[in-house]
Computed example of a mutant assay.
Amino acid sequence: MSKTRKIIYSILTEIQKGENRPHWKDYGIEKEEFANIIEMMEDEGLIKNSSVVRGGIGNKAHAIFIKDAKITMKGLDYLEENSIWKKTYKGLKEVREWLPL
């Protein structure tokens, strides 16, 4: 499975828990990549109430808002379809070690 799919799983899990909101730095990726993932998740209907503010040369991500994001039924289905990761996912503190598995 791809790293992006695992990041999506992690983001959905953290949103569902409602405790911590993931940040791009948690995953050791660039802000732009994280913004693209959040936009993809919103476009695919996995989450709602998120937004990415873009602008300037290259239309780069300036801000990513997921504080009020909610998981959708489609997002819950994604978690269920990838439930094999539930056994190894331990949360944001250990996410960088988990991604390469």
Rank of each mutant, 00 (worst) to 15 (best):
N59A: 04
K70F: 05
F65C: 09
V95T: 01
N59S: 08
F34R: 06
F34M: 08
G28S: 11
V95N: 01
E94I: 03
F34S: 07
K70I: 11
K90I: 06
L92M: 09
Y78F: 15
W98K: 00
V52Q: 07
S51L: 12
I11S: 10
Y27N: 02
L12E: 07
K86A: 13
E42W: 00
V53A: 12
R21M: 09
I47Q: 04
M41S: 06
R5A: 11
L76P: 00
D77N: 12
G58W: 01
I29R: 07
A63K: 15
F65I: 11
K86T: 14
W85Q: 06
Q16S: 12
E14K: 10
I47C: 05
K86G: 08
K60G: 00
S2P: 13
N49Q: 12
R54G: 06
W85G: 02
S51R: 14
T13H: 15
M73I: 13
E97P: 00
G91V: 08
E81Y: 06
I8R: 07
L76A: 10
T88E: 15
A61P: 02
Y78P: 02
S2F: 04
A61R: 05
R5Y: 07
S2M: 07
N36E: 12
K17V: 00
K67I: 14
H23A: 08
S83I: 12
K87L: 15
D68E: 14
T4E: 14
N20A: 13
R5V: 00
R5G: 11
Q16H: 14
W24S: 10
G58Y: 02
N49F: 14
A61L: 02
D77L: 13
M40C: 07
G75P: 04
K6I: 00
R5P: 00
D68I: 10
G18Y: 05
I11T: 13
K3N: 12
K6N: 00
N49S: 12
L79G: 04
L92N: 09
Y27T: 04
G18I: 06
F34V: 04
V95A: 04
G45C: 04
S83H: 12
F34W: 07
Y27W: 08
N59W: 03
Q16R: 14
Q16G: 09
Y9P: 03
I66Y: 03
I84T: 13
L12P: 08
I15G: 04
V53D: 13
D26V: 06
N82G: 04
Y78H: 03
M41W: 03
N59F: 03
I7E: 02
K87Y: 13
E42H: 07
G55L: 03
G18L: 07
I7W: 01
R54K: 08
L92R: 08
A63V: 10
N49P: 00
G18N: 06
S10P: 06
F34K: 04
N49H: 10
F34T: 04
D68C: 10
E30S: 13
N59C: 02
K48E: 15
N36M: 11
P100S: 05
G91S: 10
M1V: 01
D26R: 05
H23D: 11
